[in-house]
Amino acid sequence: MKSRDFSRSLWVFHLNTGSCNGCDIEILAALTPRYDVERFGMKLVGSPRHADVLLVTGPVTRDMEDKLKRVYAQTPDPKVVMVVGNCGNTGDVFYESYNLAGPADRLIPVDVYVPGCPPRPEAVIYGVVKAWKLLEEGKRR
């Protein structure tokens, strides 16, 4: 199924699962006048119910395991999950730490990985564009 319905209208919900705020600040930087993702119709929303993209940062601590799964279930279909930052991708320096339940793709299906510690806003925007293409082509898991 090919559609252009998600073309330039992606609403992103940002979930911090124990991140150090490095990635989160880079995500906010993407909203600033210099990068301005609103040009492409992207918007950060306050509730997962409004979201098309679930953007996860952080290595998923034990406390956040249940919340991550619930927020994933709360996001209406069709949706894509995007993990931003090394921690969310692999666990990074927290790998095999006793208090981690993650990385995120052990708990929920992840569609787009954006590595970097933290990734630059360009990388975050590129990741969102990939997510949008997945939604358009209906290739999401």
Partner: peptide
């Protein structure tokens, strides 16, 4: 509002796209 914040901002047709997309989404 975007121009007043010295951003470029979305095209004027953005709300039409948003509504069209929302109508396609799951209604929970």
């Amino acid at each position: 509002v975007a121009r007043m914040q010295s951003r470029v901002g979305p095209p004027v047709t953005q709300p039409f796209r948003d509504v069209k997309k929302l109508l396609l989404k799951e209604n929970i």
